[in-house]
Nucleic acid binder design. Structure first.
Lengths: 205, 205
DNA sequence: GATTTTCAGATACTATCGGTATCTGAGTGG
DNA sequence: CCACTCAGATACCGATAGTATCTGAAAATC
């Protein structure tokens, strides 16, 4: 095996990785529709044939990019939560994650644009849903961890709170990608409102 | 007075209205990118020239469509809030508005897709921001009205709560346009969590 | 009311895009 | 050494947003 310097499989993996790398940058900077496969391939030093040899099409390429971003996001927020000690710092780290702190500010914009475009492709939509579910569960675990650690209770069931925070982050990011003036603090404000100080009432009805 | 049957201006207004009407249906059903101007014009009984004679381009056409939808939304939620008497019914009406009750369920999907696409056109982005601000202010007024009417307090400042609910509605709609299983109740749950029962604590710090 | 002007909308065209079909040549196994 | 494989290149196709130009009927001018 590997008699020569690099095997074909290794070269292809390099090509695939380079394409994802370049595509991530261009998708995030210009959006999904405004990014052409020709430009991605050229920027990566290949031709469009390389893209179609490594991905089924534009949607699958974007899905691969979102995989990378999602992994980064989950890792980043996990680190922030386990590194920070007090609730305030954790909330801030979470808020940063939600729109523009860790990784790329344009994430939510790409996410929702691609979501709208991929609505008609059943398989792509299903893949996106799977990823969203994973993120929601990760958020749920983190809320549980934080709430327990600080001896507090959540006003909402954990899965509901997780869905609410993911939706809020996505919506806030989408609106903020148009209007940078929208206050970032909304996210932490809602989180604080949902997590009452210890000894406060539990959700009644 | 109009010697002939209809003046040119009247005909053009009819044409413009018909184009917006058809475009609204197709944009909402298929999304922004998947809707071609050729198909819109043909379905409306015109050629593409009619579109470019009435709108500067695809983005301006979509902006005109969103104008109609926004007006419908604001009117609908205002009616729902002033018609319903008790808080529960109002919350439900508001939740319906947020994703799929009144008007079209695909609104948020179109909104965020168009927002992502129109990011690079400074003038279109500014127009969208203006409309969002109007909606946020309308929501704020309604929260104020409801809270006052029911003798309650909000855990968050009204503008913050309005921004949070708009973001939540947009994000929830965007996610729900991909995954119909996402629980609609999240919206009302958050609203209830943000509006404490009378006599409850005010937000501390 | 005949002639001229105007302009909403049609037609024809271009550039660019995602995607497909085909080709090529370096790497691989025999 | 030769035949085969297949990652990536090249050439093409259909669709699309946008532009340039044309046309004919409504409007203006006399």
């Amino acid at each position: 095996m590997t008699g020569t310097r690099v095997t074909r499989a290794e070269r292809q993996a390099q090509t695939r990785g380079r394409l994802i790398e370049v595509a991530q940058e261009m998708f995030l900077r210009d959006g999904y529709a405004a990014t052409s496969l020709d430009k991605v391939a050229l920027e990566a030093g290949f031709s469009k044939g390389a893209v179609y040899s490594n991905f089924a099409g534009k949607e699958e390429l974007c899905l691969a990019v979102l995989d990378v971003i999602h992994a980064e996001k989950v890792r980043g927020v996990r680190e922030a939560f386990t590194r920070e000690a007090d609730l305030e710092a954790q909330l801030k780290a979470f808020a940063d994650w939600a729109h523009d702190g860790l990784g790329e500010p344009r994430w939510t914009a790409l996410e929702v644009e691609f979501g709208a475009v991929a609505r008609h492709n059943e398989w792509v939509a299903a893949e996106l849903v799977t990823r969203h579910r994973e993120i929601r569960e990760a958020i749920g675990q983190l809320i549980e961890y934080v709430v327990e650690e600080a001896g507090l209770t959540s006003r909402l069931p954990i899965p509901t709170a997780a869905a609410a925070l993911l939706s809020l982050g996505v919506g806030l990011g989408a609106l903020r990608s148009l209007d940078a003036h929208i206050d970032v603090g909304v996210f932490t404000d809602v989180m604080r409102a949902l997590i009452p100080p210890a000894g406060d009432d539990a959700p009644a009805d």
